[in-house]
């Protein structure tokens, strides 16, 4: 019994220590990040591999989610003779919830796991150590550009996701099911507020971006450098990111939308 308690306590302390390490890690990476042109080109390269390469999955998922939303929404709304409200339903669910959350989940699976595996492999093949021995801080050279690229890319991907989703909703609702196009847009415009919906959605995605990128990069940097360690850390990245995204989403939704 005592052993069990001691084990539990040790586990808690381990978790606390990992949290502390991750805090020091992000602090050391980002403080005094060089603002040279070379740093910029490293950042651009990361925006490419994190953001641009995630575009396809974001666009395709956004399109389908918008189309499904319109289809489901239509069958419900048509019973009340309220299919005019389809545009507002699609746009509100996308801007407030689906775009930030689904884009972040896809981002965790597509870019987050890749980040963890990449940095983990660099650690396992001693590339990080050798960079340190050359006298270059891998936190600044490898980690910082990836963190900043992640923070930047996800909000953009979220906006693209929402735009494509609304487009998909329009395609199904107006082009296919025959909802009046004018009513579709005007109802949407009267229901969606730029500040309380679009901007809040972007703020959500920014918070998710911080969380996912941080988790992914830290898991890669902190893993046990074996093939098993890499696969475990990659799994952890996706699981932790997903849980954190959903948990944070609840908190943010409660803060942003509860009094509207």
């Amino acid at each position: 019994m005592l052993d069990l308690l001691a084990g539990l306590g040790r586990k808690q302390l381990d978790i606390l220590a990992a949290l502390g390490r991750s805090g020091i890690f992000i602090f050391q990476s980002l403080v005094g990040w060089p603002k040279s042109t070379e740093a910029l080109s490293l950042w651009v390269r990361q925006v490419y591999s994190i953001g641009v390469l995630s575009l396809i999955i974001i666009v395709v998922s956004g399109l389908f989610i918008g189309m499904v939303l319109a289809l489901q929404g239509y069958t419900i709304l048509v019973d009340f003779g309220a299919e005019q409200a389809l545009g507002q339903m699609v746009a509100l669910s996308l801007t407030r919830e689906l775009a930030p959350v689904v884009a972040a989940l896809l981002f965790a699976g597509r870019a987050g796991s890749a980040l963890t595996a990449e940095i983990g492999l660099m650690k396992a093949t001693e590339q990080l150590s050798s960079m340190e021995m050359i006298g270059v801080d891998p936190l600044k050279r490898i980690v910082a550009p990836r963190l900043l690229a992640g923070f930047f890319a996800l909000p953009l991907l979220t906006l693209v996701f929402a735009m494509v989703g609304v487009g998909g909703g329009w395609l199904v609702g107006v082009d296919w099911l025959g909802v009046d196009g004018g009513a579709f847009w005007s109802n949407m415009q009267s229901a969606v507020g730029f500040q309380q919906d679009v901007i809040n959605g972007v703020i959500k995605s920014l918070v998710f971006a911080l969380a996912v990128t941080w988790i992914a990069v830290f898991q890669g940097y902190d893993l046990v450098p074996t093939s098993e360690g890499i696969s475990r850390a990659t799994t952890k990245t996706v699981v932790y990111s997903s849980l954190v995204i959903l948990g944070l989403d609840f908190i943010l939704t409660a803060l942003m939308f509860s009094n509207i």
Binding site: T125, E126, Q127, S129, S130, M131, E132, M133, I134, G135, V136, D137
Partner: peptide, 17 residues
């Protein structure tokens, strides 16, 4: 880091980027 620029190290795996 300054000190390390005066040392070179050859890793077991080579550790090329």
């Amino acid at each position: 880091f300054k000190l390390r620029s005066r040392m070179g190290m050859l890793f077991q795996s080579g550790a090329l980027f």
